[in-house]
Amino acid sequence: MNLLLWLILLVLCWPLALFALLLWPLLWLLSLPFRLIGISVDALFDFLRTLLHLPARLLGSSKH
């Protein structure tokens, strides 16, 4: 889908399409730290949820 949109942009306005093609890897590199922070926060919340549900699991609750 993204390729099709880029090809349409290439036909309609080729300088903008080439600029987007050159800018995309730079934006991807800039977003990497935010992705790593998101993964870390998600793992932290999963750990806290597991820690909070541990007493119920130890007592034999049927719900998980």
Results as ranks from 00 to 15, higher is better:
I8L: 09
A20I: 05
L7W: 14
D46Y: 00
L22N: 04
L16H: 00
F47C: 12
S31P: 01
P25S: 00
L21A: 15
A17N: 07
L36W: 14
I39H: 05
S40A: 10
G38C: 03
L27R: 11
S40C: 05
W28P: 01
T50H: 11
L27N: 03
F45K: 12
A20D: 02
P25Y: 10
A17S: 13
L23A: 15
W14C: 06
S31E: 12
G38Q: 06
A56P: 01
L12E: 11
L12Q: 13
P33S: 03
H53C: 08
S40Y: 00
P25H: 06
L26F: 08
G60Y: 09
N2Q: 11
L48C: 09
A56Q: 11
L32E: 09
D46N: 04
P15M: 00
L36E: 05
P55H: 07
H64A: 09
G60L: 13
D46C: 05
L59W: 10
P55Q: 10
L44P: 00
V41C: 03
L21N: 03
L29V: 10
W14F: 09
L5T: 03
G38N: 11
P15L: 03
L36Y: 10
L12F: 11
H53Y: 09
V41N: 02
L36D: 06
R57E: 14
L52Q: 13
L3M: 08
L18R: 01
L51H: 11
L26G: 08
F34Y: 13
I8V: 13
L58H: 09
C13T: 07
